[in-house]
Amino acid sequence: MTNMKDVEIKDEWFTPKSKNMVKAEMVVRPSLSYWADAWRKLRKNKLAMSGLLFLMLLAIMAIFVPIFSPYLVTATDYPNQNKAPSMMHWFGTDDAGRDVFTRTWYGARISLFVGWMAALIDFFIGIIYGGISGYKGGKVDLMMMRIIEVLYGLPHLLVVILLMVVMDRSLTTIIIALTITGWVGMARIVRGQVLQIKNYEFVTASKSFGAKTSRIIRKNLLPNTMGPIIVQMTLTVPSAIFAEAFLSFLGLGIQTPFASWGVMANDALPVILSGDWWRLFFPALFISLTMFAFNVLGDGLQDALDPKQGG
């Protein structure tokens, strides 16, 4: 600004950049959809990605190890009971000579199955209930939320324990018991999201074009509520896995000789002071790693799916 006179004004400063006109208007970064952007952000989060990788490996092992293992999950082998890990039995054997390696991966099957089924059922019930409650609003919403409020006050695991006492102890029962109270959290989240989004301009615009309610819910509301819903699902899975292990540990879930991580930990309880460390160690390790993986993945997704967070 000072000494304006000293600056020599050159003519070439004023030649129009005609050739570059079009390029100047171009957006440098490729336009990313919501999901592509979320994936880009998630990929940068090393902890979340290692969680995802671990879960994928876990799923593959859970599917294939029990199929290709030379040992059956329930097969007893009394001469070889309580053997330490060796080439024959990589994770050792339990008090009936069952192979702990095979049982660990079979347990992974149970845990992943219970976790995902519980999350999926919660997802469907939650979306329908929460969607209707949030979209309809008014008296319907008030009534539906009253029901949820009462259900929310129930001590979750206590109800599950009661149901497990009454029904026969099977995997289906565990999933039913878990979802009977579990969907409430999901429904609350969906309702909150729908309530917020349904008043946005793009929904009004869609309505003014004459879109049907079903189309608005499918095309406008659901895609925009997906972020928090997916985060909630990744957090439901570990809590369902925990609940199954907890129930099996109390003797209310899966029963020996069938394996789940909770059952294996429970069976190891009498021998923990005797030095047979492998019987507790492996199920404990895998349940903790799985919960850890889901937790860090959930955290990562929470950040990645939040459009307000840059990075």
Partner: peptide
């Protein structure tokens, strides 16, 4: 904190005893 959230209490209890 993440480890603490991930390890179930009954697993932690049995590990502590061991």
């Amino acid at each position: 904190a993440v480890v603490g959230i991930s390890v179930p209490n009954f697993i932690l209890a049995t590990l502590f005893i061991q």
